[in-house]
Design a protein around this nucleic acid. Structure first.
Length: 848
RNA sequence: GCCGAUGUGGUGAAAUUGGCAAACACGCACGACUCAAAAUCGUGUACCGCAAGGUUUGUGGGUUCAAGUCCCACCAUCGGCACCA
């Protein structure tokens, strides 16, 4: 027998698979039940595959191979998220065209992926930077546009003055440019948005073009849709927090003694400061109101504001500040609008009005009511400007104290706690007129109803989530298919003209505008409507747009007429299992869900959630427990590991390290463990014996292993599946004879984990067919039942003895045995037995 | 500050969901083979103790015949959000 030589056998197996594409290329017309197992498609970076990729790809590969052997029709494709900034930045630095950079990176990625034996169906490969793909990204943009879901408006963008360019949010973290470290400022520019906020709640709409016959379709919203998918709870929570739904009310505070315009006495001209609050129950504690510096009404009030100079100085100063500066300011600042007061509609109190930059213009109404007694921020501000603090809610614990003292401490109760955080909770209303005595919850309902009757406000739900800014002033992305005509204005590119291809003749130097703006060929076109001179939109789309629909394309990746045909979408989608990093918990997954919901709503899809089951692979840390990074030089390159130990060992090791979703440190030392295990399996081939009856203990262990490994693959507990295989291998090793029936079952169970090894050993058994055409074994419930067990004997819950007994021993017999035990007698002698607890097939506990 | 996750030997970890804590590996120690080393195989390995025995799942309480697992309080680490009214 030759030595276990991974390099040799892995090459051999890979060649064999290459020559039998039927093993992985899945047929659309198959009677078998489908499963769609998907990895998040990678960005083909120049540094190649890292061990984190290997981790999740191995997991989905094991599941895919297992399901195929179980008789499913398994779609398991892979592709490349190829647009994006790194390739463009590299072009700016070196002049190498992104197309070339990506092409080379893709080549390396595929080579590495193949060297690990992943069973991808490459016949369906997608690449988001190819015209045949981004044609449909553009088509989808137009679909959104025609349905009012893509629109243009002025917006603040991150701008790096040194690089002269717009930055994506991810590149402007902490207010500094990722590349040059200089400060990022905010600039107002015309930008394209997708109306993601239309899909937060369930929607029911008719198609804008009226073509669809069914009048209404109910599409679950981004919030409620989470209830029907099998995702990690933490990821669901993250999405919910990002959406940030808060229920509350708007309240109109009349501006006292003044009506616009021209001091009109017409009640219709009354002006208000409208605020949003989630704590309307605290309204009687409101002692002032605050508007954001950008609040539009400020300008209208100019003539009335006695200290306008001061106010203007303040608002101008805030405009210069970056968002970061505004947030980092530890001390709250603001200016009172002298001469303007507002009326609390509930109490008719006249209150001062402030402008302050701790109020955000983009959220709610851009104005708030301030209740310093029950809100930390208002408390801070009120302390600084010496504003009254009026308590109107008794927190439950203080309420209890007051009641317990027989109501005697009436004047002193306010002093129970000096800490503001004790007062921000719900409780019982006091000093609140007719609403006193209600609980916060009851009060919110009643106060809101009161407002609605008086038409001074209404129930309102606010969200943190804003519409998605999709335009980028960048080259390496899908061009936005819009043309600006001098006469017709904004004109969508006709479908027949798609794709709008990226020009090759561009200069990558950062100019502050999209490089597309300087390509004459690209820029100057004629209007598709009227034929007049026109210019193309020069912005491209955020790469997240490309990755929001790629999973749909796999169903029908070569279709030139549609993004995918309806039948094939119906056949393959939704995705049954999706595996990828937790860093995509918010953006990618939210955007992809949004796309699915839009397409469902418009009648293109029959499902409204794209990913039924989602799992994340945990980050693999370097050996020192820190993050792997190029600069620290502690990155593990999978190629090196494959060269030394082989692909099967790397695959098994990454699965054996621990639970898939855990963050875990790499330990080069540990690889030899699985390597020895694989070597053991390899050596076993010399010991096969066809003769004789198999040992019944081994049969029992084999069937337990079939059960455990099958269940562990389904629940994705690969680490324990491998340890069970090791237990079986150790037992087979110890036994004198290795029966063919045990050995072949073992090979099949091992094959999804170590496919090359299993394939080779299978061939050595004389099979010409691949092992992956074998059926996955079933366990026999009769054979996994233990006839004998170790009965645990406890005294007062402590183990004192164990005895081997028949598995179905009765309580009487067990009690008798237990009391006969010398070790038990040592602890029970002379004491009265109070109770005996018997757990069938497990233990007996004597309580004294 | 808020939300979420995690905490078990020297190390990676396991524990039929309340029933023998530390499976399976790494490492280490000793032994076998060897002139020798590597590889391989065997034995041992949570801690204290010569032993009988006792102690142990971040800390402190509780429920239970029985707690790593359930409840309460706290501590530490990691991740996300962060003036969202």
């Amino acid at each position: 027998m030759e030595k276990y030589n991974p390099k040799e056998i892995e090459k051999k197996a890979q060649d064999k698979w290459k020559n039998s594409p039927d093993l992985v290329e899945v047929k659309d017309a198959s009677g078998k039940e489908k499963r769609f197992i998907l990895d998040m498609f990678p960005y083909p970076s120049g540094t190649g595959l890292h061990v984190g990729h290997v981790e999740s790809y191995t997991a989905t590969d094991i599941v895919s191979r297992y399901l195929r052997m179980k008789g499913y029709n398994v779609l398991h494709p892979q592709g490349f998220d190829a647009f994006g900034l790194p390739a463009e930045n590299y072009a700016i630095k070196t002049g190498v065209h992104p197309k070339a950079t990506i092409e080379e990176a893709v080549r390396v990625f595929k080579k590495q992926i193949d060297s690990l034996g992943f069973s991808y169906d490459w016949s369906r490969e997608v690449n988001s930077s190819l015209p045949e793909y981004y044609k449909w990204t553009q088509w989808l943009f137009l679909l959104f546009y025609k349905n009012g879901l893509a629109y243009k408006k002025k917006a603040k963008v991150n701008w790096c003055q040194k690089c002269q360019t717009v930055l994506a949010n991810e590149q402007a973290e902490n207010g500094k440019c990722e590349r040059c470290e200089s400060e990022v400022i905010q600039k107002d520019l015309e930008q394209w948005f997708f109306k993601i906020t239309d899909f937060i709640e369930d929607t029911s709409r008719t198609n804008a073009d009226g073509k669809r016959t069914d009048a209404e379709i109910l599409t679950s919203g981004l919030i409620s849709g989470l209830d029907k998918v099998d995702w990690p709870e933490s990821t669901k929570t993250l999405q919910q927090n990002w959406i940030g739904r808060s229920e509350g009310a708007t309240i109109k505070f009349p501006i006292s003694n003044f009506q616009f315009p021209n001091n009109s006495q017409n009640p219709n001209d009354q002006k208000y400061v409208e605020v949003f609050t989630t704590r309307i129950d605290t309204i009687f504690g409101c002692t002032y109101c605050v508007v954001a510096p950008e609040y539009p009404l400020l300008a209208e009030l100019k003539d009335r504001i006695e200290n306008w100079d001061e106010v203007e100085k303040y608002t101008q100063a805030t405009k210069k500040k970056t968002d970061l500066d505004r947030m980092e300011a530890k001390v709250k600042t603001g200016v009172e609008l002298k001469g303007v007061r507002v009326i609390n509609p509930f109490s008719n109190e006249s209150l001062p009005l402030f402008v302050a930059d701790y109020v955000l213009a983009q959220y709610g109404t851009g104005a708030v009511m301030a209740v310093p007694a029950h809100d930390e921020r208002d408390f801070e501000f009120a302390k600084k400007y010496d504003l009254p603090i009026k308590k109107v809610i008794i927190p439950p614990f203080i309420g209890t104290l007051v009641r317990d003292s027989g109501g005697l401490i009436i004047d002193g109760w306010q002093q129970y706690s000096q800490e503001i955080k004790d007062w921000v909770v719900d409780g019982e209303l006091i000093n609140s007129g007719e609403f006193s005595g209600l609980t916060s919850e009851e009060a919110r309902k009643k106060l809101t109803t009161w407002l609605e009757e008086k038409k001074l406000g209404e129930k309102k739900i606010n969200y943190r989530l804003r519409d998605w800014l999709v335009s980028r002033q960048r080259y390496w992305g899908a061009p936005i298919p819009i043309i600006y005509c001098e006469k017709c204005g904004e004109v969508p590119v006709p479908e027949v003209d798609l794709p709008v291809e990226l020009p090759d003749d561009v200069d990558f130097k950062p100019t502050g505008e999209s490089p597309l703006k300087y390509s004459e060929k690209f820029q100057n076109v004629v209007c598709p409507k009227c034929g007049a001179k026109a210019k193309r939109e020069s912005d491209t789309m955020d790469t997240f747009v490309c990755s929001s629909w790629y999973y749909l394309r796999y169903a029908d990746s070569k279709n030139e007429k549609e993004f995918a045909s309806k039948e094939l979408l119906k056949k393959w989608l939704p995705v049954d299992l999706y595996v990828g990093g937790a860093e995509h918990s918010v953006l990618h997954l939210l955007y992809a869900r949004f796309f699915t919901k839009v397409l469902h709503n418009l009648g293109y899809l029959e499902f409204d959630e794209p990913f039924l089951k989602l799992r994340h692979q945990g980050t693999i840390l370097a050996e020192d427990g820190t993050k792997m990074s190029k600069s620290k030089g502690n990155v593990v390159n999978p190629d090196d590991v494959v060269a030394q130990y082989g692909a099967d060992a790397l695959r098994c090791f990454e699965m054996f390290m621990g639970p898939l979703e855990d963050m875990k440190p790499w330990q080069t030392r540990g690889i030899v463990g699985v390597y020895r295990f694989l070597e053991k399996a390899w050596k076993m081939q010399t010991r096969i014996s066809e003769q004789g009856t198999a040992n019944s203990n081994l049969n029992n262990l084999l069937h337990k292993t079939i059960k455990k490994v099958s269940e562990d693959i389904e629940t994705m507990h690969f680490n324990t599946a491998i340890s069970q295989l090791m237990i079986l291998a150790n037992a087979l090793e110890k036994e004198g004879n290795l029966y063919s029936i045990h050995y072949t079952s073992f090979l099949i169970l091992l094959s999804p984990f170590a496919p090359h090894l299993a394939e080779n050993l299978w061939e050595k058994l004389g099979h010409s067919e691949s092992i992956f055409q074998e059926k996955w074994p079933e366990y026999d419930p009769e054979l996994i039942r233990d006839e004998e067990i170790e009965l645990v004997i406890q005294v007062n819950g402590k183990v004192r003895d164990t005895v081997k007994v028949s598995a179905d021993i009765s309580e009487e017999e067990a009690t008798k045995l237990a009391l006969e035990s010398e070790k038990v007698k040592n602890h029970t002698s002379g004491k009265e037995i109070k109770k005996v607890i018997f757990v069938k097939g497990r233990l007996i506990n004597i309580v004294i």
